[in-house]
């Protein structure tokens, strides 16, 4: 399916949701304080944009997400690569990582506050902790699944350990790392909202929470939609960057192959 066709297909569900929403709020018995109708949401959106607050909050949260996500990408890819290359390191680190992963974010917060205070640093740390796991796990998987045959080719041509890593293991793992990064990005957005529960007075997560306590559900929905849209855009951005980096995968998908033998 061509690109334009893809966009149209992707819009089917959102349009369906909007229609259902309209029906539910016009003919249903949903209280407006929990599910406002489209017009109220539209109005709230216009108000928030006009007041400039939405843009400011968005930029602040976006900044936190980007910082936390980049930090988690660096840590996740680094650790994941180390563990993928060394069975011993993997055995040493992976059980602890898996255990930590199960601990809900809420439990970390008091400790993080003690270590990192209540400023920007602690928020970025929270995002980093949340997002690092999918990136690490996927990097580890991509690296360790590298076929022995390719590694043997590297040995044949006397590549040293670093060269083998950059020319064989890493390119092999790139598609999988991409999967991890996309997952990590989604988690980053969830984490930024959680992080803005701690001593924040700005940011879209904070705004969403504040709106909720004041029963301004139209504002809540505006925030949700905005987060969703920005999330999609960032996800697409990562895809585009990675498509540039992995041209051979695209060709596989489009099924280009030689005709002669």
């Amino acid at each position: 399916m061509n690109k334009v066709g893809k966009v149209w297909t992707g819009l089917i569900l959102p349009v369906a949701i909007i229609i259902l929403w309209y029906l539910a709020t016009t003919f249903g018995t949903m209280p407006a304080s929990i599910l406002p109708d489209l017009r109220m949401v539209g109005r709230a959106f216009a108000e928030m944009i006009a007041a400039g607050q939405l843009q400011k909050d968005l930029l602040i949260s976006l900044g936190r997400v980007i910082k936390g996500f980049l930090a988690s990408a660096v840590v996740g890819i680094f650790l994941g690569s180390l563990m993928g290359m060394s069975q011993k390191l993997k055995e040493m680190i992976l059980p602890t990582v898996t255990a930590i992963r199960q601990i809900p974010m809420v439990a970390w917060i008091p400790l993080i506050i003690l270590w990192a205070g209540i400023g920007e640093k602690s928020k970025v740390i929270i995002i980093m902790i949340a997002a690092v796991f999918p990136i690490l796990v996927n990097t580890l998987s991509g690296i360790s699944s590298t076929q022995e045959g390719y590694v043997e080719v590297a040995r044949l041509y006397k590549l040293n350990r670093w060269e083998t890593f950059t020319k064989v293991y890493l390119p092999h793992a790139l598609p999988q790392i991409l999967v991890g990064l996309k997952l990590g990005l989604g988690v980053s957005w969830m984490a930024v909202v959680a992080s803005e529960l701690i001593a924040a007075s700005t940011g879209i997560g904070y705004r969403m929470n504040e709106a909720r306590s004041l029963m301004k559900s139209d504002k809540v929905i505006v925030c949700m939609i905005v987060i969703g849209l920005i999330g999609i855009m960032m996800d697409k951005l990562i895809s585009i960057v990675f498509d540039r980096l992995t041209p051979w995968i695209q060709l596989q998908k489009t099924g280009g192959s030689g005709s002669q033998s």
Partner: peptide
């Protein structure tokens, strides 16, 4: 004592690195 530039090898599964163009594969060594 180990592999060397004067002795090449071809495997049954061609083992061309999928992320390199043919010219870069051929020039790998």
């Amino acid at each position: 004592v180990g592999p060397g530039p004067k002795c090449g090898m071809v495997f049954q599964d061609h083992r061309l690195l999928p992320w390199l163009k043919i010219k870069d594969n051929v020039g790998f060594g």
